[in-house]
């Protein structure tokens, strides 16, 4: 077997994450997940497989949920990236966050950032989705702790709080 010679030239680009521009220098093979966590210190985004199977790494790319482990960071130049770190306004929690905290939507918390982002994408589009829509929307996010029921309730309550806020 031959030695794999790693002479990859790093790329430099500006990534817009949570409305903030980051000047980043990274190897071109790196996924968005890796760049967020390793180069931008945004470790709120989690990983459970790095193969697109668990949903823990879900972030929003131009408002759409994507699995950050399946997206190359180089594809994200000039696009809007949203992560869990961008949800709260200062120290005020996003309504989804406060609902998850209040209603048991988070236990170990490991799946939580991915589910929050997926739920946010849903609620941004459909402010009052039914239980079935919620179940479908998060069906790509595995949670090993909760049995999902308190997650649905948290999303429903988060939606209610969001509607209240926007009134």
């Amino acid at each position: 077997m031959n030695a794999v010679v790693s002479v990859q030239r790093n790329v430099r680009m500006t990534l817009r994450v949570n409305g903030e521009d980051f000047d980043a220098l990274f190897a071109p093979y790196k996924t968005l997940l890796e760049v967020l966590r390793e180069d931008l210190d945004l470790t709120g985004t989690k990983h459970g497989c790095e193969l697109g199977e668990c949903g823990a790494c879900a972030v929003l790319l131009d408002g759409e949920p994507v699995l950050a482990c399946l997206v190359l960071a180089v594809e994200c130049e000039g696009r809007s990236i949203e992560t869990v770190e961008g949800l709260a306004r200062g120290s005020e929690l996003h309504p989804l966050q406060s609902a998850f905290a209040d209603l048991g939507g988070t236990q170990c918390g490991y799946c939580t950032p991915g589910i929050l982002m997926t739920a946010k994408a849903l609620l941004d589009r459909e402010p009052d989705p039914g239980r079935e829509r919620i179940r479908e929307a998060i069906s790509g996010n595995l949670c090993r702790c909760t049995g999902y029921q308190q997650i649905y309730e948290s999303i429903e309550e988060g939606a209610r709080r969001m509607r209240e806020q926007s009134q």
Partner: peptide, 21 residues
């Protein structure tokens, strides 16, 4: 009640082992 560690979990601030650098 909201559990005492819930806030840090919903903000992504809980530091799991792989988050440490």
């Amino acid at each position: 009640r909201r559990r005492v560690d819930a806030r840090s979990k919903v903000t992504g601030l809980t530091r799991f082992a792989d988050d440490l650098v």
